[in-house]
């Protein structure tokens, strides 16, 4: 019965998506707990300890409480945009997970343009953020939304250039092929051009996931909470979920692109390696977040256009040259 149902491609895809959604939600709860603990230890505090054993249930309590809160739609807001915006932010994040290979064959949907699709689908979220900023009819939200748009558009370009360099090496845009090309510790991070590309990629993703040094869209001291200032309860929870899911995806994509995907020591299944490596990268992101202060908005855009984009272009040329003249990753 179940076998028959799963033979239908539509039902298969739906089941995959539902499974991914569950995994993402669970992963996000773990990430939030981890973020609070890491923040605590960096600031020589303890972080949550009282809810459940060692505070493990803290994020569960937070999530449940957010669902139970009153749902406020401010009177001057544009109802249509206000209600739609969280979905526009959350759905693209879910959509990009569909092409992420967790293990050999463990991918909801593999196709030959996956790298392009990740970039394209991820960009839709910017529209959701601008919708939230504009739709709430609040000056802080509007400023936050527009800043976010400027920041995300600027930092998308270095990220795309870094991914392009990887595509040259792997000679394919499919994420599965990219991960396959790094089997047996031939990780792309070991090639000098791609090491630089990895740095460009991580800095770009730091900005795209709105983390401090680049958390200007939500700068508390000037913009209250940026584009989600007026969102309460479950709608805010969706923004929160999207942000953390996005962080995890940025790290997991970095693992697939530069750190060998599911490649690791034999003995454990590949998916565990991928998740473990992603968590290490997420830890690095959190570490940066809780250590560095926030940059100014002109420094932010200046850094993207004057430093990261030129480096990205050089890396692309360098990667292309080393593939053509030195054989690149291929022996």
């Amino acid at each position: 019965m179940i076998e028959q149902a799963l033979a239908n491609p539509w039902i298969r895809q739906l089941a995959n998506a539902a499974l991914l959604l569950a995994v993402i939600n669970l992963g996000v709860l773990v990430l939030i707990y981890m973020e609070r603990k890491v923040a605590g230890f960096i600031q020589s505090r303890l972080g949550p300890v009282h809810v459940g054993p060692r505070g493990w249930l803290q994020s569960v309590a937070d999530a449940l409480k957010l669902i139970l809160k009153e749902d406020i739609i401010p009177a001057p807001a544009d109802r249509f945009l206000f209600v739609l915006a969280p979905f526009f932010v959350f759905v693209p994040v879910l959509a990009v997970f569909l092409v992420l290979p967790f293990n050999a064959g463990w991918v909801a949907h593999d196709f030959s343009l996956a790298a392009l699709y990740v970039i394209a689908a991820g960009t839709v979220a910017i529209m959701g953020i601008v919708m939230a900023g504009w739709g709430t009819n609040n000056k802080y939200s509007l400023l936050g939304g527009l800043r976010s748009a400027a920041q995300l558009v600027s930092y998308e370009i270095p990220v795309v250039l870094a991914i392009l360099a990887v595509v040259f090496y792997a000679q394919s845009m499919s994420l599965v092929d990219i991960a396959e090309a790094q089997r047996g510790f031939g990780w792309f991070i070991f090639h000098p051009p791609l090491l630089v590309a990895a740095f460009v990629y991580m800095i770009g993703q730091l900005a795209e996931t709105n983390r401090t040094p680049f958390d200007l869209p939500e700068a508390e001291s000037e913009l209250v909470s940026g584009f989600h200032t007026e969102y309460s309860g479950i709608r805010f929870a969706m923004f929160f979920l999207a942000e953390f899911a996005n962080t995890f995806f940025a790290a997991a994509l970095a693992v697939v692109l530069f750190f060998g995907g599911w490649d690791g020591l034999p003995g454990l299944t590949g998916a565990l390696w991928l998740v473990a490596k992603s968590y290490v990268l997420v830890f690095v992101l959190m570490w940066i977040r809780w250590t560095l202060p926030r940059v100014r908005v002109d420094q932010l855009l200046g850094f993207a256009w004057k430093v990261l984009v030129p480096i990205g272009l050089i890396v692309v040329l360098w990667a292309a040259a080393s593939v053509v003249y030195a054989g690149g990753a291929k022996p």
């Binding site: 020589s44 505090r45 949550p48 937070d62």
Partner: peptide, 9 residues
């Protein structure tokens, strides 16, 4: 740091 309200969520 010293009293840490985050302990209580």
């Amino acid at each position: 740091s010293h009293y840490d309200l985050d302990r209580f969520g």
